[in-house]
Nucleic acid binder design. Structure first.
Lengths: 139, 139
DNA sequence: GTTGAATACTTAGACAGGCTAACTTAGACT
DNA sequence: AGTCTAAGTTAGCCTGTCTAAGTATTCAAC
């Protein structure tokens, strides 16, 4: 087995545990992790449906259902694009923005607390690996 | 915002992309990623239901449903513990083992290919960060 | 040694999240 | 005008997850 394959196996295992960790972090929060992710996309500006779907790597009908639920919950509002009547836009409501802030704080605190159990040297190693993880994931 | 919080945000974002990457890796494979994970747990020995549920951080009824489907698909077989008639054990069938091998090869190849797009220096950085990720995730 | 609590698991019912297929409406391009 | 393409939605199906409730077995305590 090549070095890359060994690395692949180990990375895969580590990721599995980290994902389970983050799942526990958001359990009981007032939005699901998917909803949190979508709210995050809407933080700075309104988006069109297809933009959201692509960004979240899901198909358009999936995003439609997701946004339907969030609209019912009062977290987002649909709008229209005056220059193209086919397009629906989505933006945060005040309620949605508040919800986003609350959950973000909780997540950040949870992960930060975990990170603080690491030694400064370990934190440094992790910080340097982040751009690499990023490159790997966005390819 | 503290250094830990910054790190937390960045890590969270990187992980999101990596998870999406791995999801694409198994899309179209003959087992779902959950099934793959369960098959992996059974590789070396039979397990009892509650053991599996705990290991995968799900509740027992969830694992029951999962195993029901895999049993229907012929990937696993239920057995009994002679010393305690309440306990059900689960083990791989020949078919299940074959399926596990196929999917594992595909995953490994996919991730390894991605890893090979990194420079040796980047691979080194990643390799050193793995124990840290592991420590973080298993806490 | 019978009964009562605890343990291991299953079933049922609900919901989120994902997909494909089929439909509607609106633009774009002859 | 007529047709092709694009943007969204609806509907139907599946997986994955939960809680609540039920069954069967073990164990402990009288």
């Amino acid at each position: 087995m090549s070095a890359s394959q060994t690395l692949a196996e180990q990375l895969s295992a580590s990721l599995r545990h980290l994902v389970l960790l983050l799942r526990r972090a958001v359990a009981g929060q007032p939005v699901t992790s998917q909803q949190y992710a979508v709210l995050g996309s809407l933080e700075h500006r309104a988006r069109r449906m297809s933009e959201l779907a692509e960004e979240h790597a899901v198909h358009l009908p999936t995003m439609t259902v997701q946004i339907n639920r969030m609209e019912d919950a009062g977290l987002v509002a649909r709008g229209s694009d005056p220059s193209d009547a086919r397009v629906r836009t989505v933006e945060l409501t005040e309620e949605g923005r508040a919800r986003l802030d609350v959950v973000r704080q909780a997540r950040r605190a949870f992960l930060a607390a975990r990170l603080e159990t690491l030694t400064p040297a370990e934190q440094e190693i992790l910080a340097r690996a982040l751009p690499v993880l990023d490159k790997l994931g966005r390819s």
